[in-house]
Design a protein around this nucleic acid. Structure first.
Lengths: 128, 128
DNA sequence: CAGTCAAGACTACACGCGTAATCCAAAGGA
DNA sequence: TCCTTTGGATTACGCGTGTAGTCTTGACTG
């Protein structure tokens, strides 16, 4: 599975979210899923699906007279791309300033902090 | 100082970076600074400056026959906007998954980890 | 005073994106 | 068999962005 390296837009990512939760799906099901939480027109959603196809972010396999769609770009890959992009564009590629920023300017709940500590402990465990 | 809440584009942010390092500056100095690290045309840079003006992200004060430019949007504000946007768009608004993602998929140096630990210690200090 | 130059203002243009509408072909119903 | 329906393919269109080019006006030069 080669990494997919095409940027997908905000609206397109909403379509991907549906497929990341469940796939393969027919376009009708995707439309239905999205319309539960937004009022996008069916045509709009199909357009986005087609653009994702063009970008190679999803695949379509024929199923009778329609297609079933499934993601080729994984959620983790996409998250990596977006995170990396933020890191490079906004924080000069360094993780610590990003973290410092979050700690100083974003509200971290006690739970967040506890989770962070656990994560770091886990990382250090792995290291040694 | 009211927070500036207009999105600035990638290219525009390069111009802001110059002004965040030093301000106020005449456009000529901004052009010179940017051309040290890129080959953007002078006209391009001036266009970006003007768009930033239009967005209210910088201010221009007359200085004889030219303007001196200074940021109105601060770097920290911008970093917050961008971070928040990533957090919401990509990680459902929760910090821990973002961090988990970084810890699992991005390479964190030992130094990063040490800094993270220090940050968390500091946060917890502050809390109690 | 007329011409030139430089900084900023205005205009341009292609491409991606959000947001659809229209066109087409195959399948199913009358 | 012809019409309708339905999924998909193609086309549309305004806005932001990257990337400049042209126009204007005031200042300086001869």
């Amino acid at each position: 599975m080669p990494p997919i390296n095409v940027p997908i837009s905000e609206a397109e990512s909403r379509v991907m979210e549906v497929l990341w939760q469940q796939a393969p799906l027919a376009s009708e099901q995707i439309v239905a899923a999205i319309q539960q939480h937004s009022d996008w027109h069916e045509k709009t959603i199909r357009t986005l699906l087609n653009r994702l196809l063009g970008k190679g972010a999803v695949e379509a396999t024929r199923d009778g007279r329609r297609y079933l769609y499934a993601p080729l770009l994984s959620r983790a890959q996409w998250q990596s791309q977006e995170s990396h992009s933020l890191l490079d564009r906004v924080f000069g590629g360094r993780v610590a300033p990003l973290l410092a920023h979050f700690s100083q300017h974003e509200k971290l709940s006690a739970k967040d902090i506890a989770e962070l500590r656990k994560l770091i402990d886990a990382i250090e465990q792995k290291e040694r």
